Amino acid sequence: MKVIAIVGPTAVGKTSLSIDLAKRFDGEIISGDSMQVYRGLDIGTAKVTSEEMAGIPHHLIDVRDADQSYSAADFQKTARQTIQAITQRGKLPIIVGGTGLYIQSLLWDYKLGSEGEPEDDSLRKKYEAFAEKNGNQALWEKLCAVDALAAEKIHYNNRKKMIRALEVFQLTGHSILEPKEQPKKLYDSFLIGLNTERTILYQRINHRVDLMVEQGLLAEAKKLAKTPDVQAAQGIGYKELFPYFSGDTSLEEAVEEVKLHSRRYAKRQLTWFRNRMSVHWYDLVKQPEMISTIEADIARWLEDQD
């Protein structure tokens, strides 16, 4: 089964490219973004609009309410079923997103979770004592410093999971969310990576945040601020605005935090895709004409037999 995946950091043109390729190669699009599953969170997640879809079917967008949880395992199961259905319709599945764990867990056959990891009671007690003394936020910041992957996925109020992730990392040197061995690929996949010069990328991210604020980001964030403990409320672009609503910081400072965290996330995204997957990289920001190169590369790949 052939599958295209378009990956890379935020603000590099993944959505636009996916629609162009879906038109060119008779495809349907599956969102591989952990936040676009939530209804009502459109601006802060840079969700594709109905106009932008241009009639191309999109899947796994708006499939959860903002107060519901959604895991990589949920995505893995549903996205594989969707790939099967798209292929049976004679269409080409195109996965688009920047959530590395989602993309990897979909295209490769590995189990998610921490089964079989070593344990150490003394380490666990040490982190429990640290949390009791310093609070969950400090524990989360400690986890973020050593295992950003786990910190991104574990809510800061889930002390048990944070402690377990810290314990596993100290004992093994790897994230609790990493596969233990390189599993086999499930699909004949062609991975397209979009990126550009870091200075340009960061300028585009900053500009995108400013546009989101103009388009109504604060209204979305304000709704989430009423339920700050739900999973969706931890998304970048929302949680940074909560201190503004409570009067603890200015709007300008809160927006700068959104920009800072968005840039840091983009850096983590690039690190993930470069280190864990074989990706064909292109820069459509500086060289938009490279889309013809991408189309030619895909055409050759499609001609190859499975």
Rank of each mutant, 00 (worst) to 15 (best):
L60V: 05
I103Q: 10
E117K: 10
A225Y: 11
D304G: 00
E119S: 13
H155K: 12
S278E: 13
S71N: 07
L149F: 00
E28M: 09
V37K: 00
A131C: 14
D120N: 14
S31Y: 07
I61M: 11
L191D: 10
H59R: 08
Y70H: 15
V7R: 03
Q84W: 09
H261E: 13
G116S: 05
S105F: 09
V209Q: 04
G235V: 04
I236Y: 04
E115I: 03
F273A: 01
A145L: 13
L139Y: 02
I83W: 02
G40L: 04
R276M: 03
N134Q: 12
K125Q: 14
G173F: 13
Q36A: 13
A233S: 14
T45P: 10
L260P: 02
G100V: 04
V285A: 12
E256Q: 14
M290H: 12
Y202W: 13
Q287N: 15
I86T: 05
A73Y: 10
F190R: 01
S50I: 15
Q137I: 13
S262T: 12
V213N: 03
F25G: 09
L270M: 07
P183H: 10
I192M: 05
Y156T: 06
Q269E: 10
K239N: 10
T227K: 11
I83N: 03
D120Q: 07
G237F: 00
R263K: 15
M1S: 12
Y202C: 06
V168M: 02
G193P: 06
I94P: 07
L270K: 01
D74L: 08
L302Y: 00
K160W: 06
G193A: 05
Q76R: 15
L17D: 07
Q182I: 14
Y156F: 14
R124D: 01
A72P: 05
S105N: 12
H280D: 09
M290A: 12
P179Y: 10
L41T: 11
V230N: 01
P9G: 10
Q137C: 07
S50A: 15
I56P: 08
